[in-house]
């Protein structure tokens, strides 16, 4: 089976002071056609930059190396015409704050019709197409919304419009960068459900970027965890919750308060998340890791296969056997 998207050894650097600084050091992941993959990380992990690299919308000062292939075609070496076709037809992206991606003096119809014009769909055809797109994102009164300006609509509605615009080109891959972070909790649930349904119905591959392991588990088949510009764990989403492979993932799971039960004190990770360029030699998580040994600081652990997933921790088997990467389900305590 060929992967829809394959990222291999991706590295992104920006000029910082006199030298180049890593923002992403080494990211490898793959998405099969129709598969949903969650990319989870805290601030500075490089998750958004990874997604931007896929459609090559990084700032011009960025230096990118490694390999990104879409359906076998190398993305990083595409010529501009090819790249445009790739962005128009194959991939779409939705962002955290929809309002900054919409022109405030144009109606929603103008916005949706703009993409259609490139394919020669105009006038009444564009309007009826826009209406059908809005009903697919469960908007009840598409006519009113089409004639509205962005400021007249709520954040949740705008995000639905963005999703409608994203599926307009029938993409095979959808990149969603924290699409619900700016939304209210109840709205978040609705928008997630729409994304989930659309990608299942249409067999669209999904890369869902979030800082929330629970959200990733809710709509993604697999979860990839990033820390300081590196992929540190990859597993089935439920398996990540049941049996995390990396101490960082395990730490994240226990440090978060749970709605279903109160803990006397949360078992927190010490310190703060770091960016790739701040990472020390060796394992970048070692300074915060309760299980770190001197050897962990010697070299960067390889991202290797383990228990049906992948992990970048030299002590993963050992910790797993000893039960130190504790199962975290709320039924437990």
């Amino acid at each position: 089976m060929t992967d829809l998207l394959r990222i291999e050894g991706l590295r992104i650097q920006f000029p910082g002071g006199s030298q180049m600084r890593d923002v992403v050091s080494e990211v490898s992941l793959a998405i099969a056609p129709g598969e949903a993959v969650g990319l989870v990380g805290e601030s500075g992990s490089g998750k958004s930059m990874t997604a931007r690299a896929v459609i090559r919308v990084l700032p011009p000062t960025a230096r990118v190396s490694g390999e990104i292939t879409f359906d076998g075609a190398p993305v990083l070496s595409m010529a501009s015409k090819q790249l445009r076709a790739f962005r128009q037809k194959d991939v779409a992206m939705i962002f955290q704050d929809p309002s900054v991606h919409l022109n405030p003096i144009r109606t929603i119809l103008d916005f949706l019709a703009e993409g259609m014009r490139l394919r020669g769909v105009t006038g009444d055809a564009a309007r009826s197409r826009a209406k059908s797109l809005l009903s697919q994102v469960l908007i009840d009164d598409p006519d009113r919304v089409l004639d509205s300006y962005p400021h007249q609509l709520s954040g949740g509605m705008l995000q639905r419009v963005m999703i409608a615009s994203a599926i307009d080109g029938e993409p095979r891959l959808l990149l969603a960068d924290e699409p619900t972070t700016a939304l209210d909790v109840t709205t978040q649930a609705e928008v997630l459900a729409i994304i989930d349904r659309l990608r299942r119905e249409r067999g669209v591959g999904l890369l869902f970027i979030t800082h929330d392991l629970e959200l990733a588990a809710a709509i993604c088949d697999r979860t990839v965890v990033m820390y300081a510009g590196r992929t540190v764990e990859e597993q089935g989403s439920m398996a990540v919750h049941r049996a995390p492979l990396h101490p960082y993932t395990a730490g994240l799971l226990v440090s978060r308060p749970h709605v279903s039960q109160k803990q006397a004190r949360l078992q927190v990770l010490p310190g703060r998340p770091i960016a790739a360029y701040e990472a020390p030699g060796g394992c970048s998580f070692a300074p915060r890791c309760a299980h770190a040994q001197p050897a962990c600081e010697a070299e960067v652990p390889a991202f290797r296969a383990l228990a049906g997933g992948h992990v970048a921790c030299r002590r993963a088997e050992e910790l797993r056997t000893a039960g130190l990467l504790k199962e975290v389900t709320h039924a437990e305590s």
Binding site: V185, A189, E190, V191, A193, I194, L215, A217, A218
Partner: peptide, 10 residues
Amino acid sequence: VPDVGWKPTA
């Protein structure tokens, strides 16, 4: 509220 095993509904 997303929790383990939670599925969003629209």
